[in-house]
């Protein structure tokens, strides 16, 4: 995803430079997600709407909406994105 590869003169290694550490964080997040999804079975809901009673409603809604948001926004770029100097020509 990087569009330029700058010269990095930094011999120091930082914690996140090691891909194993990044993997650890991602696994931790996945475990938390799975745990939270499963937690729906263990508490009593006080819903305002019937939809809230569905198993894992909030988790699924959050996931689906976020994916939809990003993909829709990506499509918007096709129509709405111009080069950086778009307005400068006039001003």
């Amino acid at each position: 995803m990087s569009q330029h590869s700058p010269k990095i003169n930094d011999p120091k290694k930082y914690w996140l430079d090691d891909s194993r550490n990044v993997r650890k964080i991602i696994i931790a997040i996945f475990v938390v997600c799975a745990g939270l999804f499963a937690a729906d079975a263990f508490y009593h809901k006080h819903p305002h709407f019937a939809a809230e009673e569905w198993f894992g409603f909030y988790a699924i809604y959050g996931f689906v909406m976020c994916v939809g948001l990003v993909l829709a926004a990506k499509l918007m770029r096709v129509f709405l994105m111009r080069d950086e100097g778009y307005y400068d020509k006039d001003e």
């Binding site: 938390v32 999804f37 988790a59 996931f63 976020c66 994916v67 990003v70 993909l71």
Partner: peptide, 26 residues
């Protein structure tokens, strides 16, 4: 739940290369 799965969606889209890359523009 809402937040954690939204984070999950972000990670998934990044890993699959579906997240819109940072691009200069207006």
């Amino acid at each position: 739940q809402l937040l954690a799965l939204a984070v999950f969606a972000f990670i998934l889209l990044q890993r699959l290369g579906l997240y819109p890359p940072e691009k200069p523009g207006v």
